[in-house]
Design a protein around this nucleic acid. Structure first.
Lengths: 213, 213
DNA sequence: GTCTATAAAGTGATAGAC
DNA sequence: GTCTATCACTTTATAGAC
């Protein structure tokens, strides 16, 4: 194996670990499986990392940071609020259906952190980053369409995250695309239902609302 | 160790496994840890079960069945729909805060099943039982108060389950009781918002709705 | 820095005495 | 039916040659 600077080797191991975790779960992400994925020897692993836990810790930190960056880039405001939310959800859902193992890996990493006394603080950070991303989406959507929220944006962000987590969990369990679509419609309804036009009072920023049912 | 009929020994091992999984996670639920919890020898385990996986499979079946029974018993209709939903959520939430490890164990068991080709069908079953429980709650609540739903009850059940999963997940991550309470208020709002009085047309079965915000 | 070889401990499962 | 003792294997981590 070529000689690599330590930090570059560490980065390669983090990437390999992500692949293995997505494929085999956190449980299957042994040091041997990871170094095989990275085409390294077992000793090289312990040259770069003191222990397996130290690597897993860095994997979690990495996905938290990355998560924040990705969701920030996914914000593209449509012409109306409902469509903005709905298409953002659709984009996420398509990512989910294309790489289900990846989303499942996120859940598993979170549960792993919760079990580790040393990593116990990371789930709150990870969830906080989801809330931050949701708030950013809501802010962009609101200013783009010119509406305000009828409840604290932190509360609305939490509702949005809860619904999205539930959507992910349900789809991972039963893979029902149709039900997922109807659930996403409802999520857009919910968000749009909390909007009022800045000037007027009613919430006609949502073209779809709960009609057609 | 006393001589036990096989099925009784199997039941004891399932219970012990649940304790260990709640305490140490699915990963920590080794055969040795489980028999220690059950005060048995390692050989007794393999006398009752062919393999560890066979036990885990039965553990999952057990929690799915139990889950269905528990939620069926928790249905006590209040005077109005909003309160019925809200108090059912509160009861669940208090269970969650008292035994967080138990709820986390449910999630972990589900993820474990998803990774196992042999157990791959169980997550859909487990999720289906959640949906069934939610539908039962909605039916009891509706008939007790005399309302009908403005969308298919299966869709509403899915919304309810998604929100509850999201509630659980968020609280496990950040342990924010206040935010959880506000989220439960919103869930009750959502459900009540889909109700219409059987005679009239408006949905004044909900005393709280989205007001006071 | 990178490798092979190996230590030390843990795992699921089984043999065989009682 | 229940036990102790042990097999065969995998795990993380390290020693030491190069």
């Amino acid at each position: 194996m070529a000689r690599l600077p330590a930090d570059q080797r560490r980065a390669a191991l983090v990437q390999a670990a992500l692949v293995v975790i997505a494929r085999d779960g956190v449980h299957g992400a042994t040091t041997r499986a990871i170094v095989a994925e990275a085409h390294m020897s077992l000793a090289s692993f312990h040259y770069a990392y003191r222990s397996r836990d130290e690597l897993i810790r860095e994997v979690i930190s990495f996905v938290v940071d990355q998560q924040e960056a990705v969701s920030r880039a996914a914000l593209v405001a449509s012409d109306d609020l409902w469509s903005t939310v709905r298409s953002a959800l659709q984009a996420y859902f398509e990512l989910l259906t294309e790489y289900p193992e990846r989303e499942q890996a996120m859940f598993e990493l979170m549960h792993y952190s919760m079990r580790s006394p040393e990593l116990g603080t990371l789930p709150a950070v990870q969830h906080g980053s989801y809330l931050t991303a949701a708030r950013a989406l809501l802010e962009v959507g609101a200013t783009a369409v010119g509406v305000a929220w009828t409840l604290p944006i932190d509360d609305l962000a939490r509702i949005l995250v809860a619904l999205t987590d539930g959507l992910t969990y349900a789809w991972l369990a039963d893979r029902d695309d149709g039900a997922a679509g109807r659930l996403m419609d409802h999520i857009a309804d919910t968000v749009a239902g909390f909007a009022v036009t800045s000037t007027g009072t009613a919430a006609d920023a949502a073209p779809r609302k709960e009609a057609r049912r």
